[in-house]
Nucleic acid binder design. Structure first.
Length: 349
DNA sequence: AACGCGGGGAG
DNA sequence: CTCCCAGCGTT
């Protein structure tokens, strides 16, 4: 993005914002650090129009850090009722106590990040809205707008995508009043450059937008679809000896906790033969011979899908590395086997 | 990187 | 109904 483009984008945003910007309670003067912080905590994962109905009652009851710090947590939680994510109310109250004791809200990013409930977004929001510093607050709106302008397909949650968005928007915020430009970018994301059904025909910065030029602006800047699970390739081994099949218990926490598993490899790409050999060595298998027999297996979880094959291996009847064990037919019937690995037992077991 | 955490608005 | 929202803290 050329400096001249950042300048032009800033000018168009300011012009558009002057007549299309939203009138939101926390934007009205005085835009003090306290009011900014309260609004930002309320706005975490909560739409602006919902917060707009609740903001004034809260700051009327607790007008400043001192008032909030003196309240009991129970009272603050009651004032938060209906807003959800009640942990935010506790964090705000704790931060108020720190600030009331300290005197004022810090300006430095690192110091803000140490306060309860203030993460990367809120720290930047305080700096841009309360102190008018060119520090883009990368919420869902600003990420989406930036990634569409850049034509960047990356998942907005990824660090790499955020770095790119930060670079572009820093330039824009330096080309005008950072607080107003941040307001404008938020409103653009909420009213025009929406997650679904963006209205490119009325967008003031469409001329600079690669996403619009591509003809599929919706394809950029959206969170990875919930249903779109990660696909992993799997090679599971049916290692046979005269004593049975090789299995071991999985860790007691996490996916399929405590169930039993056979030797297998999971990776985004098909594993190489060397990895199979190392896997067998790790399990303490001696005299392994690949029979060449293979059959397909697949399993779909909520968050990931395994697609691959089972390979039949023959090995010597020597003790494997703990906690792996040879399980005969009787033992296999006694332990818990995830259905994901049932395919290992087909073809004769 | 992936979850859990509330509740509501929009399509 | 599903998707998504001015995210953070924890693992």
């Amino acid at each position: 993005m050329a400096t001249a483009d950042a300048q032009s984008i800033a000018e168009e945003l300011m012009e558009w914002f002057s007549h299309e910007g939203r009138d939101l309670p926390w934007r009205r003067p005085p835009r003090t650090p306290y009011r900014v912080l309260v609004s930002e905590l309320m706005l975490q994962q909560t739409r602006a129009d919902v917060v707009a109905r609740r903001f004034e009652a809260f700051v009327d009851r607790y007008p400043d850090f001192a008032a909030l710090a003196q309240a009991t947590l129970d009272d603050v939680l009651r004032a938060w009722e209906g807003l959800g994510y009640y942990r935010r109310a506790q964090a705000l109250w704790r931060t108020a106590r720190v600030v009331a004791a300290r005197g004022e809200l810090p300006v430095e990013r690192e110091e803000l990040l140490r306060l309860p409930g203030i993460g990367p977004y809120s720290a930047s929001a305080v700096r841009s809205f309360a102190f008018s510093l060119p520090d883009p607050a990368l919420d869902a709106n600003l990420r989406r707008v930036a990634l569409r302008v850049m034509g960047e397909r990356a998942d907005p949650a990824r660090a790499q995508a955020q770095k790119a968005a930060h670079g572009l928007l820093s330039e824009v915020l330096k080309a005008g009043p950072p607080a107003d430009l941040s307001d404008a970018l938020m409103d653009l994301g909420a009213l025009v450059c929406t997650s679904r059904g963006p209205r490119c025909e009325i967008c003031p910065i469409a001329r600079w937008c690669a996403g619009r030029e591509s003809g599929e602006p919706e394809a950029f800047g959206r969170p990875a679809a919930k249903g779109a699970r990660r696909e992993l390739r799997i090679v599971a081994l049916r290692v046979e000896s005269e004593l049975g099949l090789l299995w071991r218990p999985r860790p007691s926490k996490g996916l399929l906790a405590g169930l039993w598993e056979p030797p297998h490899l999971l990776a985004p790409e098909q594993p190489g033969e060397g990895e199979i050999d190392r896997l067998l060595a790790t399990w303490g298998v001696r005299g392994a011979r690949d029979t060449g027999e293979r059959w397909p297996m697949s399993h779909v979880f909520t968050h990931q899908a395994w697609i691959g094959e089972v390979r039949r291996i023959e090995a010597e009847s020597l003790p494997p590395s703990a906690p792996a064990r040879w399980l005969n037919r009787h033992a296999l019937a006694e332990v818990a086997l995830p259905s994901a690995f049932r395919a290992v037992l087909s073809k004769g077991w």
